[in-house]
Structures are given as C-alpha cells and as structure tokens.
C-alpha cells in the first residue's frame, strides 16, 4: 500500500517522470518553446494542425521541439467526431506518433468541449491504436464511458480555456479522480502555479498548461514555476498530507451511551 518511490506516469506505454504537459499555442516567439520545455521539465507538448497560409515560409513548428519530448497533437478546430478522427489520422501519418488529444468544440462562445462527439471519436481512434487523451467536461458518467471506449486518460477542464480561473470544477474533478481507473490530466483554465499545485495535491495525475505560460512576460520562468508547482503538488499528494479539519471535536452526545 505504500506509494511508489519510483513515481512515473505511464501513458501509451511511455513513462513520464514529469507531470506537467505544456502547449505550443500563443507564444510571442516560437524560439521560446525549447527553453521553456527545458526550464519546466515538461516531457509532452501539444501541437495543432491547420490549413497552411499560402505563401507562408514559416518553418515547421516541430523543428522547435526537441526529439526527447513526446508530441501530443490535438484535434482543435474539429467540430465533429468525424473531423477529429480525420485530423488524428493525418497527424499520425505525418510522423507525430500515436498520441492524440481529442478536442471537439462546437460552443464557440466559451470553447467548451462537446462530450458526445468526443466519445464517438475516442471509440474509433482507440480501436485504431491511438493513445487517446480526450479533453472533456468534468462528468463522472462520461469519464466512465471514455474508459469503456478505450481512452488512455481523461482530461477534464479546470475552467474554460484561457480564463486562468483555476479549478472552478474542483468538486467534480475530485470525484473523477476518486472513481477513475485512468490517469486524470487537468486541462484548461489553470492560470497560476498554485492552481496547478492544488490539482496535483488533490490527486490529479498531471496538469496541462499552455496559455498561462505562453502569455506571461517571461514564458521560460513561468514554465519553470509551473514545473516546480506540479512537482510540489505531486510530492504533497504522495506524502499523504492531512486534510483540513473543518469541525471541532464535541463532547459525547451521540456515543456517550456506549461507555456508560
């Protein structure tokens, strides 16, 4: 029952010693990605696939990511399961490995995930051998369905994408961690290292942070801060810290009769 000293997160047969997942979106300069990865220790990073801008001479973003880091292509832009499946297949065919973050968004106002379409895409892609990490609304029943559909992990959102609101969905995520036999990666809305640490203390298996790092004045420092926060939160979880005590001890009105 002792917690494992050799603490690794295993996903799709790969072992990760670092539990901060990062993203490549919104950086002011793509040359910051590599030093950010190094400073944060992050071993997995998301990329997206888009139609090219004709005439663009931009270099491939993949050249900014060291080979040692696992690519997690996402299906952003997909509005249906079908589109997500197509993007996933293209990503794999073009040599990005078999990890895929499913992100199907039909709500363009708040950018919240469409659980129904996400489930359909998960079923298909898991059967095709993808390591499927679906981005989801925190919903316990849905987490079970994703498990049955063959997902490799579940990625509930902490709060809407880019809001930096932190763990607004805390109590739901807590329940998902309680019931889920799959790793739980808290994705979206994590705006500060303290929020990332809180997610890890709660027992999340990993945290994905993009906007907060990329849009800070110093993404390399911010990456480092998140890396440390995630490690600290994880360590606190493993150390099995006592919970906050929320009621005082009373005299014995309920059990006194047992002693008389």
């Amino acid at each position: 029952m002792a917690k494992n000293d050799n603490d690794v997160l295993v996903l799709g047969g790969k072992s990760f010693t670092n539990r901060l997942l990062t993203g490549t979106g919104k950086f002011s300069s793509r040359s910051l990605i590599s030093p950010m990865l190094e400073a944060s220790g992050s071993q997995m990073i998301t990329v997206a696939l888009r139609r090219v801008d004709m005439g663009s001479k931009d270099e491939n973003i993949l050249t900014f990511i060291p080979d040692t880091v696992t690519l997690l292509p996402n299906t952003s832009g997909a509005r249906t399961a079908k589109e997500a499946i197509r993007i996933a297949r293209i990503a794999r065919e073009s040599g990005c490995g078999n990890f895929i973050k499913i992100e199907v968004i039909t709500d363009m106002q708040y950018l919240l995930p469409d659980n129904q379409e996400t489930l359909k895409a998960t079923e298909v892609l898991a059967k095709e051998g993808f390591v499927v990490l679906p981005y989801m609304m925190p919903d316990i029943t849905f987490a079970r369905q994703l498990h049955d559909a063959g997902a490799a992990a579940v990625m509930p959102l902490g709060s809407p994408i880019g809001t930096n609101l932190g763990l607004e969905m805390k109590s739901m995520i807590k329940r998902i961690i309680e019931i889920s036999s799959l790793p739980v990666v808290v994705d979206a809305g994590i705006g500060r290292p303290s929020q990332a640490a809180q997610a890890m203390e709660m027992g999340a298996d990993a945290v994905l942070v993009n906007t907060a790092i990329a849009t800070s004045a110093d993404p390399v420092r911010a990456g480092k801060a998140f890396g440390m926060a995630v490690a600290a939160g994880r360590m606190a979880y493993l150390a099995d810290m006592a919970d906050e005590q929320d009621f005082a001890e009373a005299s014995s009105p309920l059990t006194g009769f047992l002693r008389s």
Binding site: T24, G25, T46, V47, A48, I61, L62, S76, I161
Partner: peptide, 10 residues
C-alpha cells in the same frame, strides 16, 4: 487536396 501544417496549439 489539403495542405496542412503543424502550428502552435494547446
């Protein structure tokens, strides 16, 4: 024909 490229994304 679709010509695509990997870009930044979270």
């Amino acid at each position: 024909i679709e010509l695509l490229s990997f870009v930044g994304g979270g």
